[in-house]
Nucleic acid binder design. Structure first.
Lengths: 122, 122
DNA sequence: ATTATTGTATTACTTTATTAATACAATAGA
DNA sequence: TCTATTGTATTAATAAAGTAATACAATAAT
C-alpha cells in the first residue's frame, strides 16, 4: 500500500481515506484481517495513536470491526458494504445537487454540463 | 439579510458563504456598494475583524473589489461573474465525478442515480 | 500459567485556527 | 485644511485540533 501523505490535511484523515478507498476498491477483501495498529503505523511511518484514530473513525462507517485481542477485520457483510456504498453515493449526490442549485443551475443545465465534461474527458 | 450563524463552522466561512450566495442569487446587484466592514459586522453581530476576514476571502473570488477608502463593491463585470459561476460549477462537477468514480460507479450509474434522485424529489 | 500480541485509555504537548483588541493609513467630503 | 469614514495591519488571547508518549487491559497462543 502506498502511504503517500502530505500536510494539506490531518494525517489521520488521509489514512482513513486511503484505507476506505482500498476497501471499496476491493484491495482488502471481506473478512480479511488487517495488520495490527502498530504494524500499520510502522508501515505508514506514523504514530500508533494516529493510526488508531484513523481506524476507529473508519470503524464508525461499519466497514471494519474489531475483535478486542485478535485484531481488526474487514466486514464480511457484503450487503452492508453495498448498502454503505449506496448511502455514500446518495449523500454525494445530494450535496452536489444542493451546490449546483445554489449556483442557479437547472436540472437540464446539470445534465448538459455532465455530458460535456464526459465528452471532454473523452 | 438573515445572519443566521451557528457554531458548526467558523463564523467567517459562514458569512462568506452567505454573502456569496446572495451575490450569485442577485440579491446584491453588480456595482452595488456593500455596507462598510464595521456596519456589516454590527449587523451580523460579529467582531469587525471577523467580517473583514470573510470579505477579504470573498474578494479572492473576484466577486467583490475594494476601493481603499470608499468601500467595497460588487463587481460590475457581469461576464466575470458568469465566468466565475461556470468555473465553480466545473470544479464541483469534477470533484463529484472523482468521488463517484472512487465508489466504482460508471457514467450510466451516475446518470441513473441522478434521475432517481430527481424523481424522488418530484 | 505465562507471554506476546492485540486494541484502548489517559494524559500531555504542540501546533494551528479563530476571534478579538487596538492602532494605523488613506482619502472622500465638508 | 480638517474630520469622518473607509479598509488594513499588527498583535494578542483563546480555543480547538492533531499528534505523541506512555501505561493499561484483554486474550490468543504457547
Amino acid at each position: 500500500m502506498a502511504w503517500i501523505l502530505d500536510d494539506s490535511r490531518p494525517i489521520y484523515l488521509q489514512i482513513e481515506d486511503l484505507i476506505k478507498a482500498n476497501i471499496i476498491a476491493g484491495v482488502y477483501q471481506p473478512g480479511q484481517k488487517l495488520p495490527s495498529v502498530r504494524d500499520l503505523a510502522a508501515e505508514a511511518a506514523v504514530n500508533p495513536n494516529t493510526m488508531q484514530k484513523a481506524l476507529t473513525e473508519l470503524e464508525r462507517s461499519g466497514l471494519v470491526y474489531t475483535q478486542r485481542t485478535s485484531g481488526r477485520f474487514i466486514t464480511e457483510d457484503v450487503s452492508k458494504m453495498t448498502e454503505l456504498k449506496e448511502q455514500i453515493a446518495r449523500e454525494q449526490i445530494q450535496l452536489f445537487l444542493k451546490n449546483m442549485e445554489q449556483l442557479g443551475l437547472t436540472r437540464d443545465d446539470i445534465r448538459r454540463l455532465l455530458e460535456k465534461e464526459w465528452k471532454e474527458e473523452s
